[in-house]
């Protein structure tokens, strides 16, 4: 009958289980897949991330040298980070900020010249 009473009393005197957000913000664990980042200078526009992405949120144009990601479609599985041959993609542990409209991450890099052109 009074099983919960002990619990109730304990809860009454214990610290609160919830935090007073936004004054107390919970940290993230290391290794949490929060936000996707790209170091566009190292990107070789090989389109591996675009091909492997399960949600098809990444679009790479190897001629124009653009890399775009529909941030709202990304499912944060981290597959693109795993498959990137130059390790230019990374995930940081912070969440993306809330936004009032859909965001696209767009980056402009220098497309890599083909070997033949580079030699000329």
């Amino acid at each position: 009958m009074f099983n919960m009473t002990k619990n109730v009393v304990a809860n009454l005197f214990a610290k609160s289980s919830t935090r007073l957000y936004p004054f107390a913000v919970r940290g993230h664990f290391e290794g949490f897949r929060g936000t996707l980042h790209i170091n566009i200078d190292e990107c070789i526009f090989c389109r591996t991330c675009q091909i492997k992405c399960p949600s098809q949120c990444i679009a790479v144009d190897n001629k124009a040298g653009t890399w775009t990601c529909e941030a709202m479609s990304c499912v944060y599985c981290g597959v693109c980070v795993d498959v990137c041959p130059t390790s230019c993609l990374s995930m940081s542990k912070e969440h993306r900020q809330v936004a009032t409209e859909k965001q696209t991450m767009a980056y402009q890099g220098v497309p890599k010249k083909k070997k033949k052109e580079a030699a000329e």
Partner: peptide, 13 residues
């Protein structure tokens, strides 16, 4: 993975 946990003092869990 997981070098350290960013722990704040209000994190009672």
């Amino acid at each position: 993975i997981m070098q350290s946990y960013n722990r704040d003092k209000h994190h009672s869990i």
